[in-house]
């Protein structure tokens, strides 16, 4: 699904990514974790086509990425709902832009709002929602365009612990019902292990280690010891970068 070859990127003089190589299979999930400032968001934005790369190559479905792709859905931490549109209109936007008929939009928006349990919020504005509700709306808005690739950037980091788990479960649930390729950036080890089939550990501009997570997909995983073993492994890898930096 996604092939990244020798990708490098710099902002002015700052090198944000150096020689990234990564392969992500179709309909699998991939977590990207690493210390803040290591280039995770940059990598995601390059995949989304928001910024243009000059060195290296990115292919999605064997097509070179150039600008934003119609079937890529993206969910950011915050600021992603349009404050001047109600929940309903935010969710309908993607369909409206695609020139879909009014009746069809009405039906699809209602369906997805029911599915994500936010139908009663449809006339509210984003400023009137809680963090968890906002993320549900963002998810609805993204899913309605039927993406084959979902990119998420720290999508739970503005939420409290309980809501975090709810939203993580929701993503897993959506994935189990209808698998799509998911790449998500996180700084939570637990989230990476809960949602990532593949866990990419980054340190300053580079990929340090890729771990395969055989326990992915189990909703009850959080109460099992294997989960903590993988969390510990990820933590060790993240730690190592720290001691290296200190030397």
């Amino acid at each position: 699904m996604i092939q990244i070859k020798d990708l490098s990127y710099s902002y002015d003089s700052d090198i944000a990514l150096r020689n990234i190589n990564l392969h992500i299979e179709k309909n699998t999930t991939c977590a990207i974790i690493g210390p803040s400032g290591c280039g995770k968001t940059t990598l995601l934005y390059l995949l989304a086509g928001f910024i243009d790369y000059t060195e290296g190559e990115i292919y999605i479905k064997n097509e070179k990425v150039k600008g934003s792709r119609k079937e890529t859905g993206i969910i950011l931490q915050d600021y992603s709902l349009l404050p001047w549109k109600t929940v309903w209109h935010n969710v309908a936007l993607g369909l409206k832009i695609r020139g879909i008929s009014k009746d069809k939009i009405e039906k699809e928006v209602d369906d997805i709002l029911h599915e994500l349990d936010i139908h009663e919020l449809k006339t509210k504005y984003p400023a009137q929602l809680s963090g968890g509700q906002k993320q549900r709306v963002t998810i609805a808005r993204t899913l309605i365009i039927k993406p084959d690739l979902l990119l998420l950037d720290e999508f739970t980091s503005a939420l409290d612990a309980m809501t975090k788990e709810n939203i993580q479960n929701l993503i897993l649930n959506i994935y189990s019902k209808k698998p799509v390729t998911i790449v998500f950036v996180t700084h939570s080890i637990e989230e990476a292990v809960f949602l990532g089939q593949k866990i990419v550990i980054m340190e300053k501009a580079k990929i340090k280690k890729i771990i395969d997570n055989p326990y992915f997909g189990d909703v009850e995983i959080r109460s099992k010891i294997d989960y903590y073993n993988i969390c510990l492994e990820v933590r060790r890898w993240l730690r190592e970068g720290k001691t290296y930096e200190n030397n």
Binding site: A48, Y79, L81, L93, T138, I145
Partner: peptide, 11 residues
């Protein structure tokens, strides 16, 4: 981010 998310929806 707001600009990006609008673009990602096809706007």
């Amino acid at each position: 981010e707001l600009y990006y998310s609008a673009v990602s929806l096809g706007v």
